[in-house]
């Protein structure tokens, strides 16, 4: 990894009551890197991701984004989140707004852009995910794959430094997964920094720069996808990889 990492997670701990979910995770993501986080459910991968924009409050440790400590006590959360896009498993589109409205909301109310400018930018973002013709559709008129792409456009419109993907294709019918992965692939080609929690192994194999395997609240093993999938070193990684390969 060359240069200063864009995302730097240091000794991150997170407990829910007595349950310790993250046990001192260190993870650095370089600019333009696409990092996949895999692992069994309950391994803490989603929690790790959600700590990175403080949707989840870390119990201990520090997270730096572009050199700024986002876990600092006086950190401006809203300003930080503006710079970190997030895509959710269940899309979480606003059902009372059109696709364009979903993308425009933060442009209007966070960036305070005038309507015309926000609309232009929203349409450009929808164009990037191949949905400019669906700008006036409401979420319930869209397929799951289209909804997720609108959600990606919503994150992209703010021109974030990086995007966090929390199992972006897990809620999709198999035939709709491809369109979402296609968008993610184009983002990678455009140089977007991405941290992805997902089990799309084939996509990870040919798109990820690095795969991180988590188990029991720790990073067990990480490396290039060929190494993790082809020649895992740790027995738990081997176990997991052989299970999902089936």
């Amino acid at each position: 990894m060359a240069g200063k990492p864009l995302l730097d997670v240091r000794a991150l701990y997170k407990s829910f009551g007595k349950l310790e979910v993250l046990k001192g995770v260190d993870l650095a993501v370089a600019e333009k890197e696409l990092v996949f986080v895999i692992g069994p459910s309950g391994s803490g991968k989603s929690t790790l991701l959600r700590c990175c924009n403080r949707l989840e409050e870390p119990s201990d440790g520090a997270i730096y984004v572009d050199g700024e400590e986002i876990t600092a006590k006086l950190a401006d959360l809203n300003a930080i989140r503006r710079g970190i896009g997030m895509v959710f498993q269940s899309f979480n589109l606003y059902p009372h707004m059109t696709a364009e409205g979903n993308v425009m909301l933060a442009l209007r109310k966070v960036l305070k852009q005038p309507k015309a400018e926000a609309r232009e930018r929203a349409l450009a973002a929808l164009e990037r995910v191949g949905l400019s013709d669906k700008a006036d559709s409401y979420p319930n008129q869209l397929s799951g794959g289209q909804q997720q792409r609108v959600a990606i456009a919503r994150a992209l419109a703010l021109e974030p430094k990086m995007v966090l993907f929390d199992e972006p294709t897990s809620a999709l019918d198999p035939e709709l997964v491809g369109s979402v992965l296609e968008v993610m692939r184009s983002l990678r080609e455009a140089g977007m920094t991405m941290l992805v929690v997902s089990h799309e192994m084939r996509f990870a194999r040919d798109a990820a720069d690095r795969v991180v395997f988590m188990d029991g609240g720790n990073i067990v093993e990480q490396g290039p996808p060929e190494a993790i999938f082809g020649n895992p070193q740790h027995p738990r990684t081997r176990d997991f990889v052989s299970q999902i390969a089936r």
């Binding site: 970190i84 959710f88 919503r154």
Partner: peptide, 9 residues
Amino acid sequence: EAARSTGLN
């Protein structure tokens, strides 16, 4: 979560 993640207060 979706709204807060875009920086809305």
